[in-house]
Simulated scan of single mutants.
Amino acid sequence: MIKRLLGKLDRSSKKPVDLERTDNVPRHVAIIMDGNGRWAKKRGLPRIAGHHSGMKAVKRVTLAAKAAGVEYLTLYAFSTENWKRPKEEVDYLMKLPMEFLELELADLIRNNVQVRMMGYTNELPKQTLNALEDAVRKTASNTGLILNFALNYGSRREMMEAVKQIADDVQAGKLDCNQIDEQLMSTRLLSGDLPDPDLLIRTSGEIRLSNFMLWQLAYSEMWFTEVYWPEFSEEHFHEALMEYKRRARRYGGL
């Protein structure tokens, strides 16, 4: 049943992809990068080998998004629930941002990419946080694609923290209850200075949000594929963009 549903959702695999079209390109694409471990297991490799290969897909998709005219790319790199994984795997995942940025930061700067991050940074290892903050600082003046890493991020926690902030402001007399609306809530989220994603992509065949941007994805188009993240190519990314272009976004209207 899942494969039948995926077949409907991931429709364009046999259709030609027009790489030159830039009309109706989603401003903000969010991706749940899934399937690294299963990709590795399928090849008789340790899970960390899948994560290492997945790092290469980050570079491919970032440049593909930039070339297509996407303005914001948010990648779900590590969730607040991922700490439950084996310590060896978590330790390796915490080293990946350092390895990726050491290898690719210069090229990201040449491509005018601005690096950002959202998540609960006080819980990250110091070396991981230092590498990310260094990348954010060195790319702050770049004016091209914004590459936003969701690291130690969880949407339910994000929304609870936003509600607490609003409640504190009401209690302190800084805010009236009548001023609370969707726009205010959005600005209190970790992604408050970004537009909501227009398109969500999830790899590996799973069809769920996994506590990712639950508020922000309310009206996003969704595209699921059975392709594991390490195998996700520029062509797959453009398939998702072309499917997005075929859809009519009505936001509840006609």
Rank of each mutant, 00 (worst) to 15 (best):
K3F: 10
L5K: 05
L5D: 00
R11D: 14
R11V: 05
S12M: 06
S13D: 03
D18M: 06
L19M: 15
V25A: 11
P26S: 10
H28G: 05
A30T: 01
A30R: 08
I32M: 08
G35T: 02
W39V: 00
R43E: 05
G44H: 07
R47E: 02
A64T: 11
A64I: 11
A68P: 06
A68Q: 08
G69Q: 11
E71Q: 14
L73D: 09
T74E: 10
T74N: 10
L75Q: 02
L75S: 01
Y76T: 05
Y76L: 01
T80C: 07
K84D: 14
R85F: 01
P86T: 09
P86M: 00
D91K: 15
Y92R: 11
E99M: 11
F100K: 04
E102Q: 04
D107K: 12
D107T: 13
V113H: 02
V113W: 04
G119N: 05
Y120F: 12
Y120W: 00
T121P: 06
N122Q: 15
P125W: 07
P125N: 09
K126P: 05
K126F: 07
T128K: 01
T128C: 11
L132C: 14
E133L: 14
D134C: 04
V136K: 13
K138C: 08
T139I: 09
S141K: 14
G144N: 09
G144A: 12
L145T: 15
L147T: 02
L147F: 12
F149R: 03
F149M: 14
A150V: 08
N152C: 09
G154P: 02
R156L: 12
R156N: 13
K164S: 13
D168S: 13
Q171F: 09
Q171M: 10
K174E: 12
L175E: 03
C177W: 14
Q179W: 02
D181I: 03
M185L: 13
R188F: 11
G192R: 05
L194Q: 08
P195N: 06
I201M: 03
G205K: 05
R208Y: 01
N211V: 05
L217A: 01
S220N: 02
E221G: 08
F224S: 02
E234W: 07
F237Y: 12
H238R: 11
E239T: 03
M242L: 09
Y244W: 03
K245V: 02
R246E: 11
R250K: 12
R250H: 14
R250A: 12
Y251F: 14
G253E: 13
